[in-house]
Amino acid sequence: MLEIKNLHVKLEDEDKQILKGVDLTVPAGEVHAIMGPNGSGKSTLSYVLSGRDGYEVTGGEATLDGESLLEMEPEERAAAGLFLAFQYPVEIPGVGNMTFLRTAVNAQRKARGEEELSSADFLKLIRQKAATLKIDSEMLKRAVNVGFSGGEKKRNEILQMAMLEPRMCILDETDSGLDVDAMRLVAEGVNALRSPDRSFLVITHYQRLLDHIRPDVVHIMADGRIVRTGGPELALEVEQNGYGDLLAEVG
């Protein structure tokens, strides 16, 4: 599904190399986790994959189902099935959550040559999905993320994911700032979406989320590279010993 080969990325305006040869493959139906110290480049990887400005790819490639992602506009990547749950969801005053989601859902359907959802169908769908994430309808009426608590913003990201039904979901620290119950809701939201033709890349610092979302593979990122890849036990190792030993091992 997602294939990243030897990806090198620097900042556009600065002479600063952030990704220094990332290799990563996420097959269809699998859940992969990325852990790694602060500043190692995890968010940068997620932004570059989804097409944010400000970065320059200096080498390597990234494909989704064999199609090169890096030349596409962000909206094209979304239509191709890529989704990023932001580490810091953005507040957009004056744009209603509903309007935003409906515009997004229908734009993607249109881009894929599918029929747009009617207002009634859209409403039914969003009410149902919001209910499972315990997002009340009052929150849906508000402007996008404005006045939402940290945890509400993260749940709103998962709601968007549930509505858009992407095939490749990248979650950037969706667990940080969540209380125990919210974490369970988010994990259930993710698990409900798991299917043989949908993959997840879950960026996290904590083992806790991975208790709920059982990853197939865990990667450790350090200084712009994937330095270790293993099973769920790798996350436990990080939880217990920190990164010191792991990084010392790889040198």
Binding site: G51, E73, A107
Partner: peptide
């Protein structure tokens, strides 16, 4: 720019995203 990217990353085409942000600016 961040808001623009956020909207686009959800599949909203750039032109439409700009319209939404302009309306959001005028909302008050």
């Amino acid at each position: 720019e961040t808001a623009l990217f956020y909207l686009r990353s959800r599949g909203v085409p750039k032109e439409r995203a700009i319209v939404l942000l302009v309306l959001s600016f005028l909302a008050d």
